[in-house]
Every structure is written in structure tokens, then in C-alpha cells.
């Protein structure tokens, strides 16, 4: 037990040292761009508990979640289709490869023209960026489904709908989740970027606006909030993934691995090939 406590302290030592170091330095240096911690935290309390939550944080989150949900539905749906029908997959390949390689922020002007400056254009940009990792991983997952299970299902005349729900989707599950994890990060990034262009609320708008009016501590509170947001959303996602894919980890004998071994990155579970990642 004391070993664990020691390990825990070791893990916290560096972040604590960094924070203290920054605090001391900022106090001494009195830099305009890097205000001291207590000042940032004072502003943070003023702004985000809970003055601007309704006006900036919630609209951002709503757009992000809407875009992410649409990406999951479209990505998994199209992924099933393309994964199961080879001719379609081959025909769609060049188009998908091109759209995937296209940096999503480049589509913001297009989206603004099409949908105006409201919520729809921002959700659209999020979907255009976040759908690809889910789509590609679903295709791969569907193609990797155990062919014997499929043959068995066919031999037993299990209807196609049940085949998809009972065999193909669970089989592709781990890959789908790998894609969804990558997409989550992309969705958050695109949420911020889309709010930095032609917007009137949201976290991205807030941060850029504060910088433009040289309200530096306020800007820092926004950056910190975005960091916390990314961290928390990622954490929630990992919880959900662990729960949904419990059977998979159990089947693979990974369940004992609750506490990631020291020296192995916890975020990188053993996957034989590095997951398809994307930006």
C-alpha cells in the first residue's frame, strides 16, 4: 500500500513542481502575457462559476455533441455499408481519401456560405472533420469480423438485420470505439476553430475575443477551461468504452489489466496495429 502511495506522489511531483515553478516565475517576472496563477484563478472563479457557463460553455458543448453524435451515426452507418459491399467500398475510396486528407478548417468558409453564421455551419464543420476516423475504423472492423461466425449465421438463416446487430456490430465494436476516441479529440478542436471564425458565442469565440481586447488573464481562463474540458470528455469516453467493451476485454483476458502496468502508457492499450488516427 505504501508503495502505491509513493508511486502516486511520484506521479504528482512533476506537475506540482511545474505549477510551483510557473507561479514563482510569473510573480517575479511580472510578464504581461503570463500573469501569476492566483490572478488567473481569481478571474476563473469570476467568469466560469457560473457567469458565462450559459452564454459560452453550454452552446459550445451542445454544438460539439450534436456534431459528434451525427459523426458517429453517419460514420457507423456508412462504414457498415462500405464494409459489407466491396464494389461500393472500392468506388468510394478515392473520394473518401481526398475528403479525409482535406484539413477540415479549410471548409469553414464553404460551410459559412452554405449555412450562414449560425449553429448549423459549426456542426457541419465538426461532422466533416470527425466522421472519417469513425468511418475508416468501422470499415476495417466490419471487414475483420470472424468469417466463420458470419457463415454460421448464414447457414442458420439468421436474417440480415439480426446479423448486423448481433455479429457484425459487436465484432467491429473495438475498432469503432478506437475511431470514436480519435474523433472526439477532433470534434473538440473543430468546435473551437469553428467558433473562432464568424461567431458570437462559444469558448473559441471567448478566447480569441479576450486576446483581441488584451484581456490576458481572462484569455488564460478560457484556455485552461478548454484543457479541463478536453481532459474530462476524454475521461468520460474511456469510462464508457470500458463499460461497453467489457465483454471484449474479458474475452481477450485484458480484464485483469485494470491498473495499467507501470511503464506502459495507459492510453495505448495493446493493439497489434496502431489505430487509424487522423486529424
Amino acid at each position: 500500500m505504501s508503495r502505491r502511495v509513493l508511486g502516486f506522489l511520484l506521479e504528482l511531483a512533476l506537475p506540482a513542481a511545474l505549477l510551483i515553478g510557473y507561479g514563482l516565475w510569473a510573480h517575479r517576472a511580472g510578464s504581461f502575457y503570463f500573469p501569476p496563477l492566483d490572478e488567473i484563478f481569481r478571474y476563473f472563479r469570476e467568469l466560469w462559476l457560473f457567469d458565462r457557463v450559459g452564454s459560452d460553455l453550454l452552446p459550445s458543448l451542445a454544438r460539439m455533441l450534436a456534431g459528434y453524435a451525427a459523426s458517429v451515426v453517419i460514420g457507423v452507418g456508412l462504414g457498415l455499408l462500405l464494409g459489407m459491399y466491396r464494389p461500393l467500398r472500392v468506388a468510394a475510396e478515392p473520394v473518401v481519401e481526398f475528403l479525409r486528407a482535406l484539413p477540415a478548417p479549410a471548409l469553414i468558409p464553404f460551410s459559412l456560405l452554405m449555412f450562414g453564421a449560425g449553429n448549423a455551419s459549426k456542426v457541419f464543420v465538426i461532422v466533416l472533420g470527425a466522421v472519417w476516423p469513425i468511418l475508416l475504423n468501422t470499415i476495417d472492423g466490419v471487414r475483420g469480423v470472424d468469417p466463420q461466425a458470419l457463415d454460421m449465421a448464414r447457414a442458420h438463416r439468421i436474417p440480415p438485420g439480426a446479423r448486423i446487430v448481433r455479429i457484425i456490430l459487436p465484432g467491429a465494436g473495438p475498432r469503432v470505439f478506437a475511431g470514436m476516441r480519435t474523433s472526439l479529440a477532433i470534434a473538440i478542436i473543430l468546435m473551437v476553430v469553428s467558433e473562432m471564425v464568424a461567431s458570437s458565442n462559444g469558448l473559441g469565440y471567448f478566447v480569441l475575443e479576450q486576446q483581441r481586447s488584451f484581456a490576458i488573464p481572462e484569455m488564460w481562463t478560457g484556455i485552461i477551461l478548454l484543457g479541463v474540458l478536453g481532459f474530462v470528455l476524454n475521461w468520460i469516453f474511456l469510462r464508457v468504452e470500458r463499460r461497453v467493451l467489457r465483454w471484449h476485454r474479458g474475452a481477450r483476458g485484458l480484464l485483469a489489466e485494470h491498473e495499467p502496468a507501470a511503464g506502459a502508457p495507459s492510453s495505448l492499450k495493446k493493439t497489434p496495429t496502431p489505430e487509424k488516427s487522423d486529424a
Partner: peptide, 14 residues
């Protein structure tokens, strides 16, 4: 683990 999921673009103003 903390720095990685921070949305990079938040740093643009900085």
C-alpha cells in the same frame, strides 16, 4: 495525460 487532450487550437490566441 493532461496536455495531450488539450485542444491545440485553444493556444492560437496565446
Amino acid at each position: 495525460e493532461f496536455c495531450r487532450p488539450v485542444p491545440s487550437v485553444a493556444l492560437i490566441p496565446l
